[in-house]
Design a protein around this nucleic acid. Structure first.
Lengths: 230, 230
DNA sequence: GCAAAAGTGTTGTAGTTACACCCATGC
DNA sequence: GCATGGGTGTAACTACAACACTTTTGC
């Protein structure tokens, strides 16, 4: 190969996935018992080696599919971690991705087979290596995205009430949005459509379900939709 | 090594630097004539292989130091590009960084030795591989940073007038900020201090020079300082 | 005096916050 | 009827855009 003269290095190349889910009004993280030495059996992000003829996007996608059974999971590159001694097992460069998952029964079956478990963000166990830092960066990026566009499509069910959406935002930003103001702001974005169905489980009056309007990649980023009130 | 059983791949690992400078009221990019096959002699970003026991941050720093002679250049990770066929010479994963440089005489000497040249952003030549995409992402990130905090410390001389700063922002966002409003906004951030010196070269009245207040990493990100008026 | 940039002041508007208030319904 | 979340309305406040205005100086 052309570049071989420059390379004597043994380096490994991996991806790690920060998988966010939302369940029981809590933003959660999917963690795995590591199957590999070193640190075998400890909690970690799910990762995988990047194969030949595979991009990191592809590798992350593959890892997510294997561990959740889902295709077409929403994912976004977070950061690349490359400190030579970040992994005691060798010089492993990892490209981190975060993913957004709608937690349901089917997924949880597969997840259990992998020895994985959902953890609320504020009660995470000790993670291996620099995985805490990776989670921190992923969360920053998620918050950031949520400031600039309305997220929830991937984390919530197809139909959801505005209260459910608001509580998701409350979780993400660890704050307490005013119900009235939140509703007005969200409606002004014109990215949701009201359905005719009502959720009667959370209130006497009932709340209309909304869903995201299908659009072809036309989420224009215009400006912050919420003040970074964190 | 522990992980060797999983690796049969030949892959190369590089960094590329998007070097921004500001000169003659123009935001410029430093480009290099590639010294390597393939695409030898064509314009490209400056890059380098990541050595053993080196992080990508370290590699980018080293590459910047060699090509500009400067230590402690401000740099920030942009994105990792890993499509297996992005470089015809082999499977090269590259981590992109952008850097901010204050262009002056000394630098330009070294730069010429490397066959490098400053190009205004709107008249870039054809770049190799996916380097245009890398530049685009870097510029996005720079704009983004400039929206959230006052930049200029690395791009301008130590002392500068508010008009000079405003024209830098005009360049970055390709817009025309109102002089009065720009001044008020910048002053409200309380990150600049007025010096006693005046620049008499650009106006009859003369304009006071300002400089950035020294602070120990206390640029708190609160909210956007300028509407993304792009 | 006049041109030209530096610097200050003013006014209207848009978006947000805080909060009051009505609505629909199960109990 | 009353408690509860759903949903609407409103007044105060803030930030910003637009633009008028004053200041200082070289010519």
């Amino acid at each position: 190969m052309l570049y071989d003269q420059f390379h004597k290095t043994r380096r490994y190349f991996a991806v790690d996935c920060v998988i966010f889910g939302y369940q029981g009004e809590q933003l959660k993280l999917l963690l795995f018992k590591r199957k590999l030495e070193p640190a075998k059996g400890q909690w970690s992000l799910i990762g995988g080696w990047v194969k030949e003829d595979e991009s990191t996007e592809g590798a992350a996608h593959r890892v997510l599919q294997v561990t959740t059974g889902l295709k077409d999971i929403y994912q976004e590159q977070v950061y690349t971690f490359s400190h030579p001694s970040r992994d005691p097992g060798g010089n492993v460069v990892t490209v981190a991705y975060y993913a957004l998952i709608n937690i349901d029964e089917k997924i949880n079956e597969l997840i259990e087979q992998h020895g994985a478990q959902w953890f609320p963000l504020n009660t995470l166990p000790q993670l291996i290596f620099d995985h805490s830092e990776i989670v921190e960066k992923a969360l920053d990026k998620l918050r950031f995205k949520a400031t600039y566009e309305l997220i929830g499509k991937q984390l919530l069910a197809e139909k959801f009430t505005l209260s459910q959406l608001r509580r998701l935002y409350n979780e993400i930003f660890q704050t307490d949005f005013d119900p009235g103001n939140f509703r007005k702001k969200v409606m002004s974005l014109k990215v949701l459509e009201k359905t005719n169905e009502k959720d009667m489980s959370e209130s006497r009056k009932g709340a209309f379900y909304f869903k995201f309007i299908e659009e072809d990649e036309t989420q224009e980023k215009s400006g912050p939709i919420f003040k970074r009130s964190i």
